[in-house]
Nucleic acid binder design. Structure first.
Length: 297
DNA sequence: AATAACCCCTGTTGGC
DNA sequence: TGCCAACAGGGGTTAT
């Protein structure tokens, strides 16, 4: 999927179009894209309920934690605060289009909005693989923050001002799992996916399979600094696009793919030492690393 | 409790 | 040319 930088690019793109806008109509073309639209017991609610929850709603500025995106709804009196939440999964896109613009492939849901200036846009959720979803979810308070109930268990991400690097480092080091598996665990640190995990590990010169508990505190701190740095850099370059699956709200690709050091570069030389990058199986996916810079030890 | 295995989907690509 | 397996950036649930 879109990982943190890609989701943040989408959030920034949505902001001017949706902040203060009012929902004028909703079309659910494929209810599979509402699998996260559930009641408190976790039972999926129907499309009509989703539409009713959004019709006429006033949207606030979009928020993000890790790879989750949400748009709080201005609450009516005596109503539970709620938000339109989005997870892009592996192939989800949120596009802002002019009304009547040419159809986007795999469009599953359309939301027509009108902003305070009277501009009308069509917010489109397109998703090839249907791993992503939209939903309307209750907002709940967790400590100092307010997040959708489905995001409660998601840890803060490295770009969050309240990210506690020391606590996260200690949590990482308390696990016997492979360091990469822990880095990908959204309940430990959120926002990092397969691409940026590999890139951060390369920058830290660390083998993905090292037991997290065997890595020194200093090295874990370093790894987290690299994870944050690589995601910030990717964000500045508009995110990573390998193909047309990840795009911003205008349907445009990001430029960070050209800056990747290991991900997707099997057979190519490491830019640090010239050794050929290898691809290794890792939980039904792949890990890329430099065999010389990132040795297991 | 923590961890591993498997599930959800569709489309593209590369080897035979 | 055609077929089929492998693969693709996700999270969640179930089993161990």
């Amino acid at each position: 999927m879109p990982e943190l930088p890609e989701v943040e690019v989408v959030r920034l793109g949505l902001r001017p179009a949706v902040t203060g806008a009012r929902v004028r109509g909703v079309d659910v073309l494929d209810a599979r894209s509402l699998k996260r639209h559930r009641d408190a017991a976790g039972v999926v609610k129907n499309a009509a309920d989703f539409v009713a929850a959004l019709e006429g709603a006033e949207l606030c500025a979009p928020q993000r934690r890790g790879k989750f995106l949400w748009i709080p709804i201005e609450p009516a009196r005596d109503e539970v605060p709620r938000a339109l939440i989005a997870h892009l999964g592996m192939s989800g896109q949120l596009l802002v289009r002019e009304p009547g613009a040419l159809d986007d492939r795999h469009t599953r849901i359309r939301i027509r909005i009108e902003n305070p200036r009277g501009d009308v846009y069509e917010l489109r959720f397109a998703d090839q693989r249907c791993f992503g979803s939209l939903a309307v979810d209750a907002l709940v308070s967790v400590g100092a923050s307010v997040v959708p109930s489905q995001v409660m268990h998601i840890a803060r991400d490295p770009l969050d001002a309240a990210f506690d690097a020391v606590a996260v480092r200690n949590r990482i080091r308390s696990s016997s799992r492979a360091i990469k598996a822990v880095l990908l665990d959204q309940q430990v640190v959120s926002g990092v996916g397969n691409i940026y995990a590999d890139e951060a590990l390369w920058r830290a010169r660390m083998h993905w399979a090292r037991p997290a508990s065997s890595v020194s505190a200093r090295k874990v701190d370093e790894l987290l600094v690299h994870a944050r740095a690589v995601m910030e850099q990717a964000l500045a370059e508009g995110g990573t696009s390998f193909d047309a699956l990840y795009v911003n709200v205008n349907g445009e690709s990001g430029y960070f793919a050209r800056s990747l050091q290991v991900y997707g570069r099997a057979g190519e030389p490491c830019n640090r030492c010239g050794t050929v990058i290898v691809r290794e199986p890792f939980v039904n996916r792949s890990s890329y690393r430099c065999p010389r810079c990132q040795r297991q030890r």
